[in-house]
Amino acid sequence: MTALAALIQRELRIALRVGGGALIGVLFFLTVVVLMPFAIGPDLALLKRIGPAILWLGAMLASLLTLDRLFTADHDDGSLDIIAMSRMPLEITCAAKAFAHWLASGLPLIVATPILGLMLNLDPAATTAVALTLLIGTPALTFTGMIGAALAVTLRRGGLLLSVLVLPLSIPILIFGVAASNAAVVGPTPFGTPFTILAALTLTSLVVGPFAAAASLRQGLD
């Protein structure tokens, strides 16, 4: 158990120190959401209606952007091989890394959501709903994306390939995240239905993600 805690602590330290780049994700999120009104126009009523969708898209792209760091740096300096050789099962290692990654780059997105919600003219209830769905949904984005990150690192050619592979797989998360947020604002479905499905997707990805990522690393690192 101490090894697990040490690994999470290490990941967090690396992510938050100078050059770690976890906070770039939030900056990207802010920029993307701020850009949207320039494309759509400063119509507050329209922004209010599509605000949840904008926030979700921004968060999804931001988490995709930071995914590249999940394994690449460790692979480049060789520590990924050492971590893979340790006695801890690779699945647990992957889960720990993804969890730490989510803490460092997923949580800040949720913290930034209320501010951006204000700028998009969302009322407090809607902002809370979006933040809540992001809190439940972003782990699924991280854990699904981890599969793509593991594939990309074994191929030594990440970047664009990663997004091409991961984005189609995250469509269900996007659908139910936005649907739950909208349900809280305008209806017609109750909030609970899409929200529980979103939670189910997250739980599924928590199981499938580490196994698939570990399988891909094990196959690729030999």
Binding site: L151, T154, L155, L165, L169, V208, S216, Q219
Partner: peptide, 20 residues
């Protein structure tokens, strides 16, 4: 091997995508 992992993840995901 990379394509195999992605294909299987996709096969698990396809019914979920269809449902969503």
């Amino acid at each position: 091997r990379a394509a195999a992992v992605f294909t299987l993840v996709g096969a698990i995901n396809l019914p979920i995508i269809k449902f969503s």
